[in-house]
Simulated assay, not measured.
Amino acid sequence: MRKVFFSGASFIWILPILALVVALGVAWQSYNSRGPLVIVEFENGAGIKAGETELRYRDITVGKVENVGFTEGLGKVVASIRVDKDVAPYIDSSSVFWIVQPEVTAQGITGLSTVLSGVHIEGSWDDQIGTSTERFVGAAEPPLIRSGQAGLEIAFRTVANGQLTDNAPILFKGIEVGRVGRAKIAPRGNYAIVEALIFEEHRSLVNENTRFWDASGFSVNIGPSGAEIDFSSLATLVGGGVTFDTFVSGGGRVQDGSVFEIYPDKESARNSLFNASEVDPLKLSVVFEDNISGLAVGAPVEMSGLKIGEVEALSGVVDYDVYGDSRVRLSVNISVQPRDWACPGR
């Protein structure tokens, strides 16, 4: 009787013990397979939700936001993201994170898929395992050139009367072959500069003799055959863009980091090639005490009656430490071509 009792008792206790062991094993397996947490700071939350917002890499979910909070002083939003264990080793200091959400701009609609799936965080990193980092500062917008993306990396800057439209397409004969990033003002404020990417399959279209010009808007020419309206595409007509051409052959290969100027129109771009000098122009800034009537951008700079350059920009300057008063003075940025005044016999 006693033996039967203990046998029954042993059998009754074995089941919960086995269940507990299995539960502990599953819990340990789940804990051991978890990836690390990465902390990303953003300027605003933009729809991020704990337990819902996903981290994606090339449209594949590789993590999820576990917690959303603020930095000290409520300056920024902090998202704690649990990333997949097999992806975590590739996330290093060069990684970039940004929030993908619906956005309507002159260039079109982006992030339209998030209307149904919800806002998510996109990440970009390369395929090399680097030193692990746990804290990042999120980008306000997607990077133009992402890790592992091939292409010709160049930059544009404006010339006199030129303009740059950021986040715009680069077109060749009406076909998009690259993209322009976000334009920035140079430290001295005399021109704008922006990074750009020519897609890898089209990089051979660009060489040292290539000239770029603004393709936004349209032009109207009236001739014997009637009126002719010229614009690169409907997209550039609405949102702006850049186009280019190589007017003469023989140009050398362009390397990453090369800087090209953006001209206001095709004619200016072509003329710049045939009027180009082998010597880079000298950039000067001149401050005048008094206003000069009639001076405008594009005005010639002359020496002994010969044109040696032109005015690139005009602005007012106030500097009490330098001039001892708060008067507004005229600051003129000029571009001087050394070959035009340094040649013998002139």
Rank of each mutant, 00 (worst) to 15 (best):
P224E: 15
A183G: 10
S117W: 10
T133W: 14
I222C: 02
N221C: 02
N190M: 05
I91N: 02
C343K: 15
S80I: 14
A106Q: 14
N167H: 13
D86T: 13
S219K: 11
R157A: 11
P169S: 12
L234Y: 15
Q29D: 09
V104C: 07
R346D: 07
A313V: 08
S285G: 11
G174D: 07
S225Y: 15
E200K: 14
I154D: 01
G181M: 08
T114Q: 10
A9R: 13
A183P: 09
V78H: 00
P344G: 11
S147H: 15
L171N: 06
A140R: 15
A196R: 03
S258W: 12
V22Q: 09
V83M: 05
A150L: 13
F247H: 10
V248I: 14
E141C: 06
A196P: 02
L234V: 14
V322Q: 11
A196K: 03
V301I: 14
N333H: 13
A196G: 04
D256W: 04
V254D: 01
V100C: 04
A139L: 12
V96G: 00
P300Q: 05
A160D: 04
R34S: 10
G223C: 04
I48Q: 00
L37T: 10
V318C: 04
Q255D: 07
W13Q: 05
L284M: 04
V26G: 01
I222D: 02
G162K: 09
F260H: 09
I193H: 05
E195A: 07
K266D: 03
A155T: 08
R56D: 00
V137N: 14
E289H: 07
V238D: 00
V287A: 01
F244E: 01
L24G: 06
S95C: 04
K173L: 13
E43N: 12
S304N: 15
R179G: 03
G63F: 07
V26M: 14
E201Y: 11
V311L: 00
Y57D: 00
V254S: 01
H202P: 00
A276D: 08
E122Y: 14
G138F: 11
G108Q: 06
G25L: 11
V119D: 05
S233L: 06
L330W: 08
S132K: 15
P89G: 08
W13Y: 08
G316D: 05
I145F: 08
G178R: 03
G130P: 04
G73S: 06
T133P: 02
V38N: 02
S225G: 05
G47D: 06
